[in-house]
């Protein structure tokens, strides 16, 4: 969609650092944030995040 990390951060109301962390798969977002992301990309949470056993 041609968004920069900054654009995405603004749309989700989080910092750029959080976007970087999410992209690297280090940060586990809250359900609220996960739903916001899925709504923004018009797909399901399972299509974006893969469950990972710790």
């Amino acid at each position: 969609m041609g968004w920069t990390q900054d654009d995405l951060a603004e749309k989700l109301d989080v910092s750029r650092q959080t976007i970087i962390s999410l992209e690297k798969g280090r940060y586990n977002p809250s359900l609220i944030l996960a739903f916001k992301i899925s709504k923004l990309f018009a797909c399901r949470i399972e299509d974006i995040f893969l469950p990972e056993e710790e």
């Binding site: 951060a9 603004e10 109301d13 989080v14 910092s15 750029r16 650092q17 959080t18 962390s21 940060y27 977002p29 809250s30 609220i32 944030l33």
Partner: peptide, 11 residues
Amino acid sequence: KERRYDERYTN
């Protein structure tokens, strides 16, 4: 302004 205080920050 940078939306620094988001949920990751809190965490």
